[in-house]
């Protein structure tokens, strides 16, 4: 098993474990999990709980990126879905009713689905560049959310709604189960049906896929719908956590962190092969790094500097220039990355 370090999950996992080790050495309480009323508490549990919105958004982003796309609008969709959910609950006679909350959540997610479908329409049907197409909603989405909440930060007091982000299901936070359910459902759909491999085929080589008869339009469209839906659920969790809809702050910069999580997980921004497990690890790295930075006494506002360094290191290590340099050092076989395609054309 000398090949273990070549496994695509090796480096992300190594980074995550390093972070955890550093943390547990620096603050022994990091690993401590206490039991209160049969519920688990501790820094690790917090990481699992707080990572739920980013986890959902990053999962959707993974599939979109696999199709050679990108979805910048996820933060705005979160804001809209939170605003919708809160407005429905706020407008009802009985905010504490479970039924009301269910309706609110379903409506919010449906609205998010429509927004995702809109992105997909622009990209898959009109053929607009994904960055630009989703930029429209990124800009306008928050405006829509502000309109829904009337420009105020709508707050509600609803026990079932708060439960989504803060409640415990048996021993673990409910939000964690949402994450797990999303991961499991996505892994099941992508890997037990042919969707995953067809998505990868479209992302790796759109023309070969077209000639092989793959209906790429539906696959690409579906990816944006999925991303929208997951962002919608993330928006509900976020709103539940602060018990309010904050159209300006909800999901701010989350698209950037989600993209970072996907890249950290080993999925190339050039599209193609994707790794759901990698994205999960990537999200956990980001969340743990955030927690570490906080622990180090660095104000959370300054944490972007750390993330910037992480982004730069990751992209530089992934760049063809560095890979070529590394490759010539270790005498590995030539990789088949994009810049090499030019070489294959020399025979033409």
């Amino acid at each position: 098993m000398t090949q273990i370090w070549k496994h695509r999950l090796f480096w992300p996992l190594a980074a995550l474990i390093t972070l955890i080790v550093v943390n547990s050495v620096a603050r022994p309480r990091f690993l401590t999990i206490t039991v209160r009323d049969g519920q688990l508490y501790g820094a690790l549990i917090d990481i699992l709980r707080n990572s739920a919105p980013l986890m959902l958004v990053a999962l959707g982003m993974t599939i979109v990126i696999a199709t050679r796309g990108i979805d910048l609008s996820v933060g705005a969709i979160m804001a809209v879905s939170g605003a919708v959910a809160l407005t429905v609950i706020d407008g009802s006679n009985d905010p504490g009713n479970l039924g009301t909350v269910l309706v609110a959540v379903v409506v919010a997610v449906l609205v998010a689905l429509v927004l995702g479908a809109w992105n997909g329409f622009l990209v898959a049907v009109l053929g607009i560049q994904p960055i630009i197409a989703t930029l429209v909603l990124m800009l306008a989405g928050r405006g829509v959310a502000l309109l829904i909440t009337g420009g105020f930060i709508t707050t509600v007091n609803s026990a079932p709604f708060s439960y989504i982000a803060s409640g415990y299901l048996t021993v673990l936070p409910f939000a964690f189960f949402i994450s797990v359910a999303a991961i499991a459902a996505l892994a099941l759909v992508e890997r037990r049906t042919a969707l995953g491999v067809l998505t990868e085929a479209v992302g790796i080589n759109p023309e070969a896929s077209r000639l092989a008869g793959v209906r790429s339009r539906g696959i690409v469209w579906g990816a944006y719908i999925l991303s929208g839906v997951l962002a919608g659920v993330a928006g509900v969790i976020y709103a539940s956590n602060i018990k309010a809809a904050d159209a300006n702050a909800a999901g701010l910069f989350i698209e950037l962190y989600a993209i970072l999580a996907v890249v950290l997980g080993g999925t190339s921004l050039a599209g193609g092969k994707f790794s759901i497990a990698g994205t999960v690890v990537g999200v956990l790295i980001i969340q743990t790094l955030g927690s570490t930075i906080l622990f180090l006494g660095v104000p959370s506002a300054q944490s972007p500097v750390f993330f910037a360094v992480v982004v730069v290191v990751v992209v530089v290590v992934q760049s063809p220039r560095v890979r070529r340099a590394l490759g010539s050092m270790t005498r590995r076989r030539p990789s088949t990355t994009a810049p090499d395609q030019e070489r294959t054309k020399v025979a033409a």
Partner: peptide, 16 residues
């Protein structure tokens, strides 16, 4: 350019 999907396996390419 238009034939194989380079990053997929032999099996995946055959059944594509």
């Amino acid at each position: 350019g238009e034939g194989v999907v380079a990053d997929l396996t032999v099996a995946e390419n055959i059944v594509l």
